[in-house]
Design a protein around this nucleic acid. Structure first.
Lengths: 357, 357
DNA sequence: AATTTTAAAGAGACCGGTCTCAATGTCATT
DNA sequence: AATGACATTGAGACCGGTCTCTTTAAAATT
């Protein structure tokens, strides 16, 4: 009886076949929905299956067909509204196509990510959607594609990897935002990101190995240089990996003698902490410091002031990635496609002219 | 060559065995980590496996062992920060125990939920964590447990189902909050929830078949009755299933002659829309209307005014559910446990005394 | 040296589906 | 009536692991 609970009351095609008085092969044809069967037999098998409460063992089916019917999704952190929305996009599309999603959080840790891919490969997922933690460390992803597994990169690309990719036009967005701030007279503009470097300091763009963020910082620094602002690298702050770190970094920055007059937050969770720190320090947004954030999180419009943000098509990012994957699953022979989705700056009230000292 | 891409370069134990010059059974012992093997042979098999880039086919393994190593999670909507945080709790715990998560969104739709459970059953998940859309419609869940599948209910219980359950003390929280509002002089208190009824109107608590919400409304109405307020049923608004509906419902309510002086929002997404509608209508929180929300979403502390909320241990809700499941997976013989986690009211500034007319 | 014990390795069935190929039956064609 | 075409059904191999049972070899015992 212990065994019965373990293996469930597992009814197999053979059981159904026996009850219906046909061969296993025939029952399988009905149950599996393939091959040709007479109506009379189909009827018999169907009722037998119903009576026995037969339920296909997808594992067994996958074994022979070689398709597991599930796709692996690896994201940094499902708790981050950016990812949860993207995952929603993925699941919606993928489910319509008859697939199921195995979700793994990498915590933006490369080792965890590697383990995740390994696990997913072992589970024989039919495809992979992943938001790689580091785009210069993609050996595990190459290994996956090499073994013929369709792979789609989400939000972060990698030049080293010639696979389907869906990203936002981060560079363009960053340029836009930076230009806007400079036009308002800002010269001390900080960029705060969760990405980290070995020494927790920023030196050059190459230090950043998260594609989306690298593109943004490149855009930021590019426009600054264009405008004649040099050495803006010192305003880039890395390592805002969690609320505590973010608070520490932002507090330090705002209390230092050289305080920025504007801050660009790389995601909504960072923007939130920046907001909190300002309140705590008694600083006003936008009077003392202007704030722009990536990701139009739903709440950014209800703060006082509401926050100017870069609206990314997050749901669509996920949905598009899923579409590319499903297409490739149906037709493996295509060349890699790189999709860039447009962003949009939503002007609200968290930025204003810099005070002329 | 088409086939090679489909089935990957699938290296099997037999291949490894051949290369290592041992029998399939022996190679399997090494690769599977069971049985007894000599060091010399283990060495040989291991290197052969490495050379061939052997990767266990978990599907095949699951077939014989009967354990798939994955658990199914069905939530209303991963986009909802409540669920994404709970799912984070689940995945963290479950991964540590060596399981992987198959995530499905039900969209709070009972048919989708049924289909989800069916799918997961077919995939032979080892266990199920589910936040049932309707706790009076659990035939599919009973079916699952009947077939011996461990099941844990998350955030919503069902008397009809004697299984492990993790919920928050919603009733108590609602009573607390309601009492507080009444003490402040409020007599017109609205409760807005996403739960819906067939005619989109609220009549009695029995209309609500989402456990957590029913308990809250019961608490709300109970305290009202205690305080001598009768007919408060008319202040319960159902059907705030998405931002649009929420806006419609709240706008109607605030523009009606009998306007509430306080509103309890059943989740943070509803609270957000309420906030927006107020701004749009030029109403002040808390001067015109007091607002309390369930779920201490991270942004609720930065609005103006910051919102008084019921803090639920959301991450823990998920983590505890996962723990219960893992425990049961290791030892099936226990009786069903019902865990109730404590909530806490976080007083901020969105409520104040009702004006005495 | 003969016998018993034990460790290690091999053979092959099995899990529950799918799928190929052969066998049977039916009906139209000549 | 004989032949061929086509529709159904059956038998059994196979997927890639696990697991039981046997066999073989080496070590221990008497």
């Amino acid at each position: 009886m212990d065994k019965s609970s373990n293996k469930a009351n597992s009814v197999t095609v053979a059981d159904v076949a026996r009850k219906a008085g046909v061969s296993k092969a025939t029952a399988a044809r009905v149950l599996g929905g393939y091959g040709i069967v007479s109506d009379r037999v189909r009827e018999a098998v169907t009722t037998a299956a119903r009576l026995l409460e037969y339920r296909t063992n997808e594992l067994a089916r996958s074994m022979t067909t070689g398709r597991s019917g599930s796709i692996g999704v690896v994201v940094g952190d499902i708790e981050n509204p950016f990812f949860s929305l993207a995952v929603r996009g993925i699941t919606d599309i993928v489910r319509k196509a008859g697939f199921t999603v195995i979700l793994i959080n990498s915590g933006e840790d490369i080792d965890t990510e590697r383990a995740a891919v390994r696990t997913l490969l072992s589970k024989r997922v039919d495809g992979l959607i992943i938001s790689p933690a580091k785009d210069n460390d993609v050996e595990h992803l190459q290994e996956a594609t090499r073994s013929g597994l369709p792979l789609v990169l989400l939000d972060r690309g990698s030049e080293a990897l010639d696979v389907d990719t869906v990203i936002a036009d981060d560079r363009h967005a960053a340029e836009n935002v930076t230009r806007k701030l400079i036009r308002l007279g800002h010269r001390h503009i900080a960029y705060v990101t969760a990405c980290d470097t070995p020494d927790h300091r920023f030196h050059t763009v190459e230090d950043i190995n998260t594609g989306s963020v690298r593109r943004r910082i490149a855009g930021f620094l590019g426009v600054c240089a264009e405008a004649g602002l040099s050495g803006m690298e010192r305003w880039v702050r890395v390592g805002a990996v969690n609320p505590e770190q973010t608070r520490r970094i932002v507090t330090d920055m705002l209390q230092s003698p050289q305080r920025p007059t504007a801050i660009i937050a790389s995601d909504s969770m960072i923007a939130l902490e920046i907001f909190k720190v300002h309140r705590q320090l008694g600083l006003s947004i936008p009077d003392d410091v202007s704030l722009v954030s990536f990701h139009d999180a739903d709440w950014t419009s209800v703060t006082s002031p509401p926050i100017t943000v870069v609206r990314q098509p997050v749901y669509n990012l996920g949905a598009t990635a899923a579409k590319l994957l499903v297409e490739r699953l149906n037709d493996a022979g295509q060349t890699a496609r790189k999709v860039v989705l447009r962003t949009e700056v939503v002007e609200r009230a968290s930025i204003r002219e810099a005070e002329r000292p």
